[in-house]
Design a protein around this nucleic acid. Sequence first.
DNA 1: TTTTGGCACTCTCTGGCGCCGAGTGCCAAA
DNA 2: TTTGGCACTCGGCGCCAGAGAGTGCCAAAA
Lengths: 342, 342
Amino acid sequence: MNERAQVILKTLIDRFIRDGEPVGSRTIARESGLDLSPASIRNALLDLEEQGYLQSPHTSAGRVPTVRGYRVFVDSLLTVQPLEAEHLALLQRELVGDEALTRQQVLDTASRLLSGITHMAGVVTLPRREQLGLRHIEFLPLSERQVLAVLVFDGQEVQNRIVRVDRSFTAAELQQVSNYLNSLFIGKGIAQVRESLVEEMRRTSADMDALMRTAVELASVALEAPDEADYVIAGQSNLMDFKELSDIEKLRALFDAFTAKREMLRLLDQALDAQSAQIFIGEESGYRVLDDCSVVSAPYRVDGQVVGVLAVIGPTRMAYQRVIPIVDITARLLGSALNLSG
Amino acid sequence: MNERAQVILKTLIDRFIRDGEPVGSRTIARESGLDLSPASIRNALLDLEEQGYLQSPHTSAGRVPTVRGYRVFVDSLLTVQPLEAEHLALLQRELVGDEALTRQQVLDTASRLLSGITHMAGVVTLPRREQLGLRHIEFLPLSERQVLAVLVFDGQEVQNRIVRVDRSFTAAELQQVSNYLNSLFIGKGIAQVRESLVEEMRRTSADMDALMRTAVELASVALEAPDEADYVIAGQSNLMDFKELSDIEKLRALFDAFTAKREMLRLLDQALDAQSAQIFIGEESGYRVLDDCSVVSAPYRVDGQVVGVLAVIGPTRMAYQRVIPIVDITARLLGSALNLSG
DNA sequence: TTTTGGCACTCTCTGGCGCCGAGTGCCAAA
DNA sequence: TTTGGCACTCGGCGCCAGAGAGTGCCAAAA
């Protein structure tokens, strides 16, 4: 694509992003700075349309970018805007300000800020816990047949789990169990813990210490299925304000997908694996419900390790040049906020 | 209102609820079983309109119930439908079935079922901690200056709280503390616990048992956290399917209210205080966003104590005769589900 | 060869018009 | 008190014409 075509495409998309109306040759002639007549622009537009960067809703409307058009725009034409000082300050104040926030609060705040600043929907996945160290494990008698498992991880993370058992345990017994397990596991990551658990299982079943066997059994129940992917979303309802999403059926499908979470999680997982900022435009995501949406995502790190992603979801026609730095910086600040508390 | 008027009103509302179109005299003549001509019905309708039970969207449409109309319908005309066996079975299976669910899961399931069965939105408030009995309190050493408090309440409720302390404690010390507090508090409600805490504070400061004093101090920190009201909602997007809510602006306001939670919580609190099933029709709720909605709520009990409410939120035109028993029975089953685990 | 003005054409949008159907209110008769 | 009859009202729908925006193409100009 020659330079003139690029300028024209950029002008058109800029304009279309700004006010959402199909853009005509006349407007581009005026705004591109190219000093060409509308007629010449029309020739170029025709080319761009034939190459699949543009399309016209109907004969006598202006033109509108296709997904392919947005793609080259995002990849090479767009001039990233610096983040407004006011918003930067807001992000810093709320995320890494002096208040001590729980992990959950940090994530909620991040998604709320993302959606608030962009006026679209903001998502933040929960940090993957696989690599967090186990700091303490404790079992408490709850009732006849129930034992409460308390798992404490690095970084303020505490989890409870009620385990059903087939005989009753005294507090003293459980204390012993806890001690035994703590001596075994403390400081290890979940993956390691699981390994030694398997190991112990073999060993204990051989030399038959009843208490130890109980301990191992309880621990495996308490630790099974821990790392469920999940996310926090805010500002869904912002999406209702965009006229391109005003079809109530599509909107409903979208909201349902947000609640069902499965598809969204798969998409966000892709972004996580990529280890770097990602943009999915329209159908690129591969999920029907997101056909009219774009997703701008960035991974966030704790201790240099990518542990999650955050993203902004909005209509394909979004101000990418503004959203990209917002997502980027929020990811960084979220990382430091989590480091802080860990 | 004479009996004939009642029959007419009931027929009209039944019909309107079924298919959402204004109902004309002709239809009522056919369906009411009154054997009157449309003209006579019209006379009666005129009366009902003058008394404020009905209104007509415009001269030549049929008539539609007002809030006042719905009110008498709900209070005295409606014939409650028994809950479909299939749905009853579903509720029982999912809520009090054999699977052990955490408290959170029980609440999620309840709201999901409510919304699933009614095709509207389902809400369940978290149980109020205030009236839950304390079942167990335990302190664990976390680090040099941190102690983890684990509070177990009736009804699957487990809470963690990290308490900062100014000297380090051994596991044994904390064990003693826990034992002491358990002997003091078990079975009491939070309010009572707080009372005895104050009491103990006076007593211990007098006879100066260091450990007991520590215990009391730790406990008061752990228990000071206010009882934050909150709820779980499911099926919001069901509301998008109702044509009376299809105004995207109103819908947005409604969704925002669901996320902001404040107003909704106040309304649900009213229902909680009432200690019995409540129905708010349209503007009766007093909240603008709910002007076109009705809320059918019922409190649920744990140990005979009302601890929370659940509700179905939908358009004013909802099948009350179906929704009322659903809400009612779900409340009961939710109660037993929570009791079961306690 | 590229650019441009001119021009016919296409398509959407809007407002006006008239008709249909549903339902009403009222009245006079049963 | 009930009923049939009747004139009236009002929203919805289809149709049509005109305005406006923007296009594609062509022939002339640069």
